[in-house]
């Protein structure tokens, strides 16, 4: 095994660790952005709806790779300009990890917005009304009634988006982040044995996918209690 990887095994694992942390941080950002956007789109305030609509349409119409290159270079130029306008003498340093997770978060926020919106609409209005009639305040209604049911509807699509997100982190290697893809690329280039490293890299992704699938199906089982037939 170690011979197969010519001693690059540990640095590949370090890369895998970056891939996983980057994915998790990106998912967090995407979830927050997704919730904000879903709220905007459901708000019935025309201007908010339009902003939310433009965001989801534009982001979902441009390839991740192009978006990443655009934000990585263009975003920095923009930040520099804003900082200068504010009269701050210096720069805001955005490291590749933050740039990468922001970009992926921004992209998948658009996809998750649709997931959350769909899930919200899938809970019958009567549920919230009944809760209100029972005297619950709006936070209790959200946390006790809406959220658990939204989760059930959102989980399958949320899980799918997570898997797509993990795979799209492969592209951050292009902007210099030392994820598992970049480590494989560099190791393959140095040793002139690219096949070994791309196979190892693929296996690492398959492992992440398999663990995610397992967790997702456990979660779905849990939130589908009482909805067996419907949930399947």
């Amino acid at each position: 095994m170690f011979n197969f990887l010519h001693g690059y095994g540990p640095s590949l694992l370090e890369g895998a660790f970056i891939t996983v942390t980057l994915s998790v941080v990106s998912l967090l950002i995407a979830t927050i952005l997704g919730l904000i956007t879903a709220t905007m789109k459901l708000s019935k305030v025309r201007s908010l709806e339009i902003i939310g609509g433009i965001y989801t349409t534009v982001i979902r119409g441009i390839p991740d790779l192009v978006m990443m290159l655009l934000i990585f270079f263009g975003g920095q130029v923009l930040v520099n300009r804003v900082v200068q306008e504010l009269g701050y003498d210096g720069y805001i340093d955005i490291n590749p990890f933050i740039a990468g997770s922001m970009t992926i978060g921004l992209i998948y926020g658009a996809y998750l917005a649709e997931t959350f919106r769909g899930a919200f609409l899938a809970v019958p209005v009567g549920q919230a009304e009944a809760a209100k009639a029972c005297g619950m305040d709006s936070w209790t209604i959200f946390s006790r009634i809406m959220f658990p049911q939204m989760t059930r509807h959102a989980l399958p699509s949320f899980g799918n988006n997570w898997l797509v997100l993990v795979k799209s982190t492969a592209l951050v290697s292009v902007i210099g982040l030392e994820d598992v893809v970049r480590m494989s690329d560099l190791a393959g280039g140095s040793t002139h044995k690219p096949f070994n490293f791309w196979v190892a890299c693929a296996l690492i992704y398959l492992a992440i996918t398999s663990v995610s699938n397992f967790i997702q199906s456990r979660l779905e089982d849990r939130y589908n209690v009482g909805h067996r037939e419907e949930g399947r």
């Binding site: 795979k167 592209l171 791309w198 693929a202 996918t209």
Partner: peptide, 10 residues
């Protein structure tokens, strides 16, 4: 289960 990028490189 694997990124398209990895498949292309492979």
């Amino acid at each position: 289960g694997t990124p398209l990028l990895v498949q292309v490189y492979l």
